[in-house]
Write a protein that binds this DNA or RNA. Structure first.
Length: 276
DNA sequence: CATGTTACCTGGTCGC
DNA sequence: TGCGACCAGGTAACAT
């Protein structure tokens, strides 16, 4: 479910409301992808200072240590301001952070998500997850044309794979990868190093613009994504190719093609997106 | 080292 | 209505 825009839309939806809150209790459901790494009671009494994001991870900065939160494939958060606010945890709700300002709850049917408590960003467990992440596409100081162009030059894997890997740029998942490649008119199977300078430049621009626009629209709600306040995203109405196999390209009316790369599907227009 | 494949887990959808 | 096959927004660990 959640690519960078969904994670960022989620962050924005509860960050201010939870800032300064004291942790009153923590409860866990079924195991997530990784163990929390400490006893839930150990978190009680700490304060949530702020909520940041790195790639698809949310970083809850505590008065002591850090909580790393990943939504995996099917995760979503809900923040209920007042005291009772939320009903008892359901079958797919595996983490509750009860604070003096409301409860933050993780809903994640497939449990590919995780909540990990670490001492800080230098903690080995944090470094294992965060080191090696690519540039932040919403941060101009991080996401530069020079670094992007050099990164493409250095890889011969298909551009779709390079984008999904997140080592060059973070946050571009399966939906947005198809979208940005369509906007820059690049075939998803093109080896990254073979992309012309003109198209690479268009891709660089498209990534920045699409990510920013998708955040503004609250992300993409295909099935059940909503932000921490329960509000759905709207980017899906703007999508040009994702999920549109067989339907007419909005630019040239050629049918959109589905391509399998690894176990992931890419959608592209065979006329607009020729190889190099 | 770079790249490709598998595994994790549940639920929805589709064809028979 | 039931059942199996396949698909789904991610990514670490492994194999090549």
């Amino acid at each position: 479910m959640p690519e960078l825009p969904e994670v960022e839309a989620t962050r924005r939806s509860f960050a201010d409301a939870i800032a300064g809150a004291r942790i009153l209790s923590v409860s866990l459901g079924k195991p997530l992808r990784w163990p929390l790494g400490c006893a839930p009671q150990d978190l009680v009494g700490r304060r949530v200072l702020q909520v940041r994001r790195r790639g698809k991870y949310l970083l809850l900065e505590l008065s002591q240590g850090l909580l790393l939160l990943h939504l995996g494939m099917s995760g979503s958060l809900r923040f209920a301001p007042q005291a009772p606010g939320l009903p008892a945890a359901g079958a797919h709700e595996h983490f509750d952070l009860v604070t003096s300002q409301g409860t933050l709850r993780l809903h994640d049917p497939r449990r590919f998500g995780a909540v990990v408590a670490v001492s800080g960003e230098d903690d080995p467990r944090a470094r294992k997850l965060l080191d090696g992440l690519g540039m932040e596409p919403l941060d101009p100081a991080s996401f530069t044309w020079a670094r992007f162009a050099a990164g493409l030059q250095a890889r011969r894997a298909p551009i779709k794979t390079v984008l999904l890997a997140g080592k060059l740029v973070v946050g571009v998942g399966n939906i947005y990868a198809s979208e940005v490649l369509f906007l820059s008119r690049i075939h998803p199977a093109t080896p990254a190093c073979d992309i012309s300078t003109v198209k690479a430049r268009r891709l660089f621009t498209a990534i920045g613009q699409v990510m920013a626009q998708a955040v503004e629209l609250g992300g993409t709600t295909l099935r059940d994504f909503s932000n921490a306040l329960g509000v759905n995203g709207h980017f899906q109405h703007t999508a040009q190719v994702y999920g549109r196999a067989g339907q007419a390209c909005h630019a040239c009316s050629q049918p959109i093609q589905l391509l399998r790369q690894g176990q992931r599907s890419s959608y592209y227009c065979p006329r607009c997106q020729k190889t190099p």
